[in-house]
């Protein structure tokens, strides 16, 4: 059912995705026309403020959106490699979220780690119980084998004495350890894609660096692709090869990390980069983007960023929506300055 021939080498191909939420005040558009393509083994960073739709986009890949969310249009094409050779592409939006097929994708092919490592584990079951739950669901192994896999994975993410720690409860782990355990859990079923939803935001800066280093190492060893969501550009610079900048549910700029940092085009990206505080530049006010993110209930007409853009032109930006424009080989932006 719903299988399509493999058209490209992309592992995940989100095409023109639009998602709305039904609320008491009416329908709210959270994601509007997002397209992201992830190749196997690629690390892509998704940057945006709160409300930019980055988390909603990620949740839609696993179909774990809240009940009042509707996928209005678009497709999420996932290439499933069944035993390596014959790849099969499925449109995730066409699969019943409660079906067995969807459940086999969740955790099995696409795994997810969350912002709060403490809240991601249930406090009443051991780390091992929750890890083995995933392993037993997705891999054809018995309990002792699952336990061995879990212990190996814990050792791999740098948890010392894993034979003992596997039987401990989450509250007996430190915050950084919990996120390591969460990564171990997510990777224990060999997913081809890992979605990391702000995995370092809740951690201390030193622990953040360790976890990022660990994720890079694991990516190199295991070869899975990573979609790394963050609002922290400093974090993304360390890990991602490609960056997608989102604003109010749409992608405003997309390109290789180097390009985005050294040659940003969209006024939003430019301002976002200016807002990063720099060491040694004391006694200057931190640059902030003027205004606030508009309410999704009142999405601006024309270019969605025009209400806060210093380079807007009247009659154009507030009336027409800019089209995605090619800047460099892989670098695109949607802004009238470049059309």
């Amino acid at each position: 059912m719903n299988t399509l021939p493999a058209q490209s080498d992309a592992l995940l191909d989100i095409r023109d995705l639009a998602i709305s939420f039904k609320t008491d005040e009416g329908k709210v558009r959270a994601v509007d026309g997002v397209s992201i393509s992830v190749k196997p083994g690629q690390i892509i960073g998704v940057v945006g403020e709160s409300g930019s739709g980055k988390s909603v986009t990620m949740q839609s890949i696993l179909r774990i959106l809240p009940g009042n969310a509707i996928v209005e249009r678009g497709e999420i094409l996932l290439r499933q490699s069944r035993n390596g050779s014959d790849a099969e592409v499925v449109d995730v939006t066409q699969i019943n979220p409660n079906s067995k097929r969807m459940r086999s994708i969740r955790g099995g092919e696409v795994a997810m780690i969350f912002q709060e490592p403490t809240a991601s584990f249930s406090p009443v079951y051991t780390i091992g119980n929750q890890m083995m739950e995933a392993i037993l669901l997705h891999r054809d192994v018995n309990k002792p084998e699952a336990r061995t896999i879990a212990i190996d994975m814990l050792a791999r993410v740098g948890i010392s004495n894993p034979e003992r720690r596997i039987d401990q409860y989450p509250f007996e782990f430190s915050g950084g350890m919990r996120q390591r355990a969460m990564i171990a859990l997510a990777l224990s079923c060999n997913p081809s894609l890992l979605i990391a939803d702000e995995p370092t935001t809740a951690l201390d800066v030193t622990i953040q660096a360790q976890v990022l280093e660990l994720m890079k190492d694991l990516q190199r060893d295991l070869g899975m692709a990573i979609l790394f969501i963050t609002h922290n550009l400093g974090v993304i610079a360390q890990i991602a090869e490609e960056i997608v900048v989102m604003y109010l549910g749409t992608i405003v700029e997309k390109g290789p990390t180097r390009e985005i940092f050294h040659n940003p085009k969209h006024p939003y990206t430019v301002n976002l980069l200016k807002a990063i505080p720099k060491v040694g530049q004391s006694r200057t006010r931190l640059a902030a983007i003027e205004g606030n993110v508009p309410s999704p209930l009142e999405r601006p007409t024309g270019c969605i960023f025009h209400t806060r853009c210093s380079q807007r032109t009247h009659g154009t930006c507030d009336v027409y929506a800019p089209k995605l424009t090619q800047i460099g080989p892989d670098h695109t932006t949607s802004c009238f300055l470049y059309e």
Binding site: L62, I64, N98, R103, S104, I105, R106, G107, G108, A111, M112, F114, E116, A119, S120, F121, S122, P123, Q130, E133, A134, L137, H138, M182, L185, A186, C189
Partner: peptide
């Protein structure tokens, strides 16, 4: 509504 429930759902546990 706890994140641990969302996390368990995201690893494919039947509802």
């Amino acid at each position: 509504n706890k994140l641990s429930v969302a996390a368990a759902r995201a690893r494919g546990v039947p509802e």
